[in-house]
Write a protein that binds this DNA or RNA. Structure first.
Length: 580
RNA sequence: CGGGGCGUAGCGCAGCCCGGUAGCGCAUCUGCUUUGGGAGCAGAGGGUCGGAGGUUCGAAUCCUCUCGCCCCGACCA
């Protein structure tokens, strides 16, 4: 490709809208352009990278027995009504419209419904199983808030895969295969990932993992125990809350605590640890009032809470709603409240002689003991893990980190096969629902993540596996001699099938070098009067600081390309070594 | 959806408070010079100041409404 005619130019100034490195570099390097909020055009160089990512995805999916298919973006609404997701999501993330005949359609935000639709007619017998199909396909999600360039957009390409099994055991076995395939995919794309346990969310199912690129600009919070290797999304992360000993249960006692509305104020006023206090938090979930109690030093994890009570919609309660059940905001206790679902974190169940409000302005109760003084309908871990909390799996503090979710895998079980009637006959002739798994990777997000990880102050530093081109040919200085030599070399390389971008622009050396660094193509070969005079090439590997001068007779482009590929070997070896 | 910020030339911005002929840098085009880290000189083109109302002799500037974009939160396979 001759750069003089490349569609998409570099920009010198950091775009004012772009906050994170990948977004800034995507714009500055001319890789992507915004059309509207959450809607981006991939320019020629970025599309080449995307195609390379897609090739890696196809190879790794094929390796675990996947079969590529392609399903429509537009689905009839009835399909999504079968699983209840039309009712739950239409008009929210799920964009919908009617055609000229007033028939309702949606823009698919994922493809569980459509793939299950096909599975129920194509799969009849256990003899066909397991089967995995995948596609690389556009999705549309009407995100409430697109952000961070290509990290969270509304329209995007996703590799989504769906597997079908005779039983849970086979799904478990296959899930492990995909788990490793995913590790290989990210290693081949040149980025290290942390795999975390995660909440299945709206996709549903019993178990899920997310592949995270750890980076400060990530929007997910991760909890990591380095000592045990435990990693989880903060949404579901567990930790050791300890069991502080406050003695045998004593009789409840009311004490005046004027102007003590917060846990900190109460603990200070009474001279006790925050661990001895009981925090009350109020929600309304699916029209039920939820009275949550948790130890005072802990915070509620709303995802865990919503899962514990199987809520589909949840919001904080208003003061009026709180008073309506007989509680007093700031001085609340579950003792004596009516018409509320009481949910207790297990930290409260393990607490003796706790301090709660008295449902009376200016008063608290001492020696509150769950079970004796009030009962909770649900007792579960609903606490939010935090940096420094004790690991549940080692005697070590937890660490927190941010990450970009670049991929996820789910054990769906029978959620979709049950609701949509996707059945097969087992070896005994019994009809059973298909056991399903699903596996997603956002292609454009992965490209952005590679850039987020692989860059320096001068621009992108593409791993060769996803670089738009392998080689950047950059003649500098004036004179027909240099231009002729560069033309000849370019033609020779093109003929040889080398992926080369040729900066044939009549620009000053400074501009060319700056742009070359910005684009981040792994190997730069510079020609100039100087190198011609010495019968040499100057080679600059983007991942190295130093330039090298090679005699033409010693120069081997293949050797440099091999060296570039070797850069991602450590990541691949780490996957092999994990040897799952 | 709540909170905040911003819309002026392709990009980055000033001008707005205090109304009076729309500016700067980069980019683009022409010419000459220059060619190893974002060149110099000379010239040129390019903007209904997001949109619609209103106030005013006069609005980029003041008022009202509206649209869009970004950030924080809610939300998020």
């Amino acid at each position: 490709m001759r750069q003089s005619h490349l569609f998409g130019r570099t920009v010198r100034e950091i775009p004012s809208d772009a906050q994170i490195p990948s977004h800034q570099l995507l714009i500055r390097a001319g890789l992507a352009r915004q059309l509207s909020s959450g809607l981006y055009t991939l320019m020629p160089l970025a599309l080449r990278s995307v195609h390379k990512i897609e090739t890696i995805l196809r190879q790794e999916m094929d390796r675990v027995g996947g079969q590529e298919i392609l399903m429509p973006l537009v689905h009839p609404a009835e399909l999504w009504e079968e699983t209840g997701r039309y009712q739950a999501l239409a008009g929210k993330e799920l964009a919908h419209f009617t055609d000229r005949n007033k028939r309702a359609f949606v823009l698919a935000m994922t493809h569980e419904e459509s793939v299950t639709f096909h599975a129920r007619t194509e799969i009849n017998s256990y003899r066909q199983l397991p089967i995995m199909v995948y596609q690389i396909k556009l999705k549309f999600r009407d995100e409430p808030r697109p952000r961070a360039g290509l990290i969270r957009v509304r329209e995007f390409t996703m590799k989504d895969a769906y597997s079908f099994h005779v039983d849970e055991a086979d799904l478990d076995r296959y899930y492990e295969e995909v788990y490793v395939a995913y590790e290989r995919i990210f290693a081949r794309a040149g980025i290290p990932v942390v795999v975390v346990e995660s909440d299945p969310g709206m996709i549903g199912g019993s178990s899920a993992h997310e592949y995270m690129l750890v980076t400060p600009s990530g929007e997910d919070n991760l909890i990591i125990c380095e000592a045990s290797g435990y990693t989880a999304n903060r949404e579901i992360a567990v930790f050791d809350k300890g069991k502080p000993d406050f003695g045998d249960p004593q009789p409840v006692e009311e004490v005046a605590t004027p102007n003590c509305k917060t846990i900190e104020e109460v603990a200070n006023f009474l001279g006790v640890s925050e661990q001895q206090t009981i925090k009350a938090v109020f929600y309304v979930a699916d029209k039920r009032f939820i009275f949550v109690v948790i130890r005072g030093d802990l915070d509620v994890n709303e995802i865990k809470l919503a899962n514990a009570i199987k809520a589909t919609e949840m919001r904080p309660a208003t003061d009026e709603e709180i008073r309506a059940v007989g509680a007093v905001p700031g001085y609340a206790t579950p003792i004596g409240v009516k018409d509320a679902l009481i949910v207790a974190d297990d930290s409260v169940a393990n607490l003796t002689n706790g301090i709660s409000g008295a449902n009376k302005d200016g008063f608290h109760l001492k020696n509150v003991n769950m079970g004796r003084d009030f009962k909770a309908e649900i007792v579960k871990d609903i606490a939010l893990a935090f940096e420094g909390a004790k690991s549940a799996f080692a005697d070590a503090p937890l660490k927190a980190a941010n990450g970009i979710e670049v991929g996820n895998i789910f054990k769906l079980g029978t959620k979709y096969s049950d609701s949509m009637g996707a059945m097969f006959l087992d070896e005994n002739g019994r009809q059973k629902p298909l056991i399903m798994g699903c596996y997603g990777i956002g292609v454009d997000r992965l490209l952005a993540s590679v850039i987020e990880r692989c860059h320096d102050e001068n621009g992108v530093v593409f791993p060769i596996s996803v670089a738009p081109y392998h080689v950047h040919l950059v003649p500098v200085g004036k004179g027909d001699e240099v231009a002729d030599a560069a033309d000849a070399l370019y033609n020779e390389w093109v003929k040889a099938g080398v992926e080369v971008l040729y900066d044939d622009r009549n620009e000053s050396p400074g501009v060319k070098f700056k742009d070359s660094d910005l684009l981040g193509i792994p190997i730069r070969v510079t020609l100039s009067q100087r190198t011609l005079g010495e019968d040499s090439y100057e080679v600059k590997c983007r991942w190295k600081a130093e330039r090298e001068i090679m005699k033409r007779s010693d120069f081997s482009l293949d050797a440099y390309i091999q060296e570039a590929w070797a850069q991602i070997d450590p990541l691949l070896q780490a996957v092999e070594k994990a040897g799952r």
